[in-house]
Design a protein around this nucleic acid. Structure first.
Ligand code: NAD
Ligand code: NAD
Lengths: 217, 217
DNA sequence: AGACGCTTGTGAAATAGTTCACAATGCTAG
DNA sequence: CTAGCATTGTGAACTATTTCACAAGCGTCT
């Protein structure tokens, strides 16, 4: 793997993979960088540059084999295996995520659900029972959890994460709108919907296209 | 407003705003760029550069007034007003979002909920009734909707968005894992959790820190 | 076998974004 | 009023990312 791979390259690879999988379902065959770029909303040069960071996957004059390229991208992203995931916070967003089939389909298996609310502890969720967050460490170790999905209130998130990291969790998908602090070697990705709405608000307010006057102020 | 403002600047401004609001609740006073940067996980120079794109909000030697800076950032982001939002797809993620208080608190008001499922149409959601998506256009126009949250299956998303754009919607927050095509002047922001998990998978697979051998292959 | 058409892979150029470093400035104290 | 201190605002330097542009390579056709 190359020393430096930008975050945006990784996001695009994930995007390419989704497109390649759809193409494979539709019969597969080959794609050129131009076609893949059109489907992903980027440029052909960008597609080729992204892929070339990891190797030479195409045939000159003919493009890429859809199925094979999907396999290579999956491998690059580390998706050639299953990941064991725990969900902390069995609330509204937590339950939506639990039932989201795409996670499992991509190899992310929720193997434990934890909450602090006595009314929720013991509830059956699919084949699991919601556990008491008091035994977070035990659950993480018992299930060999590597990735934590955090859907607790923002005030609780840091404490949960500290405990999970102490129990060996190295990857965190955080839905709480708070800046998590972790040691090196722990990867945190935030999903922040309010931020996206605010970015939309900025766009709508300030990025009105040229035909409407935008030179004021 | 400056001609070019990067996306990352906007994301950071939203982040600063959340921090400033927390500081304001804790008493406020002033913040320096160093303090704000520490709270946001960035650098002081970055904070000052971001803000200086829009004006001079600080006092040399003393930093920024928390409450005043929060106001200015809110204004920059176009948050000095309420936004009328419709939610299409009254399913699992849609219902979690509907009840998410932070949206309303930030001025994003869900004023219509629509679905195609006869079992859902007519359900009372808070003060609203779930409406038939067949009357999407009527609902959007009646409520003066500007922003659409899309939580329908990926296969349905493009058609919904085309209709909404034809009815005057210019901002879309899309949860469906599909690349939406829209005309110029329509802003789409995607929330893609699978992409975040895949990025995490890449990190855990390839970005193992230096003390573990990472020069192999 | 050679020529052709098409598309990759990739250095080099261009553009975008971040960090540096410091003069300018406001406040406080004496 | 002046000195001293802290911190902003900002060009300039640096780094990262994207785009350009084209030689290299593959398969096909004659
Ligand atoms: N609902 C949404 O659409 C949405 C969207 C984006 C982000 N979020 C964020 O996700 C988080 C959860 O939101 P929600 O709407 O699902 O709230 P919720 O109140 O429905 O769920 C939170 C759950 O966490 C549990 N909990 C609280 N403290 C805990 C602890 N210390 N350990 C374990 N469990 C604990 C609660 O019992 C509850 O079941 C919040 O940080 C929120 O800001 C929610
Ligand atoms: N559940 C999650 O945690 C989650 C996470 C990320 C993304 N998503 C995405 O969000 C979308 C919805 O997921 P979900 O889990 O809530 O699914 P869901 O099946 O629970 O909800 C989808 C809803 O959309 C409605 N619907 C279908 N076609 C429609 C149409 N043409 N017009 C209006 N409504 C229509 C359905 O009746 C249903 O109520 C999907 O694209 C999914 O990939 C879901």
């Amino acid at each position: 793997m190359p020393a430096k791979v930008s975050d945006s390259t990784i996001r695009r690879l994930s995007h390419y993979l989704r497109i390649l999988e759809a193409m494979a379902r539709d019969g597969g065959g080959t794609v050129s960088s131009v076609q893949l770029a059109a489907a992903a909303g980027t440029t052909a040069a960008q597609v080729r540059k992204d892929l070339s960071l990891f190797g030479s996957f195409g045939k000159r004059g003919h493009g890429y084999q859809v199925a094979e390229l999907a396999d290579r991208v999956r491998e690059i992203l580390g998706l050639g295996r299953d990941w064991r995931v725990a969900l902390v916070g069995a609330g509204r967003i937590g339950s939506a995520l639990f039932e989201y089939a795409d996670f499992r389909r991509r190899g992310f298996h929720i193997v434990a659900v934890l909450d602090v609310d006595p009314a929720k502890i013991g509830e059956r969720w699919g084949t699991l029972a919601v556990e008491d967050v008091a035994s977070l460490e035990a659950a993480l170790e018992r299930e060999g959890v590597e990735v934590l999905i955090v859907t607790v209130p923002a005030t609780e998130a840091q404490a949960i994460v500290d405990r999970a990291v102490a129990s060996g969790v190295r990857g965190i998908l955080n839905f709480a709108p708070t800046q998590l602090r972790t040691e090196d070697g722990v990867f945190v990705h935030d999903v922040n919907m309010v931020m996206e709405l605010e970015a939309l608000s900025f766009d709508l307010t300030n990025r009105i296209p040229a035909d409407v006057g935008d030179t004021a102020d």
